[in-house]
Each structure stands twice: as structure tokens, then as C-alpha cells.
Amino acid sequence: MFNKANALRGSGAEAHRVPPALDATEAALQAHERDKILTKHHFAPEEHPCVRIEHLMKTFDGETQVLTDVNLTVWPGEVVCVLGPSGSGKSTMLRCINLLETPTAGHILIEDHEITGHLPTKEVNKLRQNLGMVFQSFNLFPHLTAKGNVMIGQTKVLKKSKEEAEAEALKQLEAVGLLDRADFKPAQLSGGQQQRVAIARAVAMHPDILLFDEPTSALDPELVRGVLDVMRDLAENGGMTMIVVTHEMGFAREVADRVVFMEGGVVVEQGKPDDVFDRPQNERTAQFLGSIG
């Protein structure tokens, strides 16, 4: 029902006419064919991708084109790491997925529901409950304790009882190793601890997909590992679908099912981590990985 025949918007819509979103079954078939060699993740033949991005375009102020033509599918339970130089549109793509940015053109489908186009606010809020987001700058609520941060979404959005929310909050804080910091305010926690609380806050909502926007970029090097450990645990034991925008090559290689390399607003190359890291097909990818590694 969210499939709109034509998802055009923005002032320059005429110039960026994109084809309508593919039919779900057809798209799944195509994606199966394409992705089976690109990811370590195993998916059943009848499975549909949980995120489908087709011809996504994003322009800021009608001038700066950040995303030119992004196409990507993510499967349930898959861990996708998005790499690329700054300004390549990684974060913008991620923010488009939960509509923190409004796409200029193209389609994003979550569980085969189109979210691009004029979605009612209620639908947007509902969609976001299923998409946990972890920010580069943590964005914890400074007036609440760690526990309060993890509880607030549950009590206000999911309408859970206080006791239920608290039990869940403590469970999630324990999972990220911060049970003993439950009553600390964010300002009293280190960056790494704050980011782990932010992860706990996102996970406590039991989203289908977790989006990580450079979760370790703002951290001191010695604090990065704690956060990555938590993320690895989520990926390996939680079976969570994760899209991770990161600069942590080691993490990407180790944990990701698929590595996506973006440059200039398009996906330049994607594939299994070992393939991309050891045998990059694209010259730009090789250059980037060389300069980092």
C-alpha cells in the first residue's frame, strides 16, 4: 500500500525522474541473484530483503548533491559495513533510511513498504520504532540517567510500565557492561560508556534494524574497543540486522557480512569483506583502503 507509482519530489524532480520501485517478489529475485556472491550472510530463497534502496538521490538546498544514485539491499540478520571517504554520502544514506533526512528522489523500502513519499507523521514515528539509530555524537539525553535514557523510549513510545521498562533497561545496560553505571548522568560517563548506553537505548526498543552512524569516530582510541565489542556481540549473538557506517576497517573485516564502499554519492563497490579488502575491483576502493590500511 505504500508503493506509489511514482516517487518524485523536489524542485528538480523532472531532471531526476527515476523508475518506480520494483515489485517486491521481482526485486527479491533480482537481489538474491545479485547478493548471493556479495555477502557472507545466508538467506533463504523465499526471503525478502528488509531494506531496499533504489536510485536514492539526495540534494541539499537544491544544489549540493550528496547522493547521486544509491542502490542497496540489506537482508534480515545481515551486518553491512559502509565504508568510504568523508563526504561520500554514507551518513546521509543512513539518515535517509529512518527519514532524518528526506530523500530528494528514489525509493527506500523497509520490509517492502515504501517510506519515501509523503508519509503521515504517525507512520514515520512507527517506522522509526523499528529502526534503532546510534549517533556519532551519542545524543544521550543529558537530563536523564543512563537507565532513564534506556527507559524513556519504552515508557513513552512503547507504553511499557515503569517496572517492565526498568527491568529491560537494566538488562540492556548489563549487556553493554554498564549495569553499575545505571544511575549516572551522561556527563558523568566517558565517551565510550555514553556510546554503549546509546546502543542499549536503541536495542531496548527491539528494533528490526540497527543503524550505526560512525559510532566510534568521536571516541578516544582506547575507548573504541569497548564499543566495538558490544557491536560485535550484537552482530554475532543477537542476530541483529545492522547497517554500520564506520572507519573501523578491522571491525568491518571481522564482523561484517558485506562491505559496501561508497564514493561520490554512489555505491562504488560491495562484496564479502575479504574480497573487498584483499582484491578490490575498483581503483578508488583500492586507493582508499591503501591509504587507510
Binding site: N98, L100, T121, K122, N125, K126, R128, Q129, L131, G132, M133, F135, S137, N139, L140, F141, I152, G153, K156, V157, A198, R201, A202, M205
Partner: peptide
């Protein structure tokens, strides 16, 4: 970032303001 974090939890504008 505070609005974004609240929105990403699925909070409505009103909820975000009040809480």
C-alpha cells in the same frame, strides 16, 4: 541531535518537547 535521538526512538514532536 536531541531531536534526532528522540525521533529515532519513535517519539512524536509533542512527546519530544515534553520529555
Amino acid at each position: 541531535g536531541q531531536y534526532e535521538a528522540a525521533s529515532s526512538l519513535g517519539m512524536s514532536h509533542m512527546m519530544t518537547m515534553v520529555n
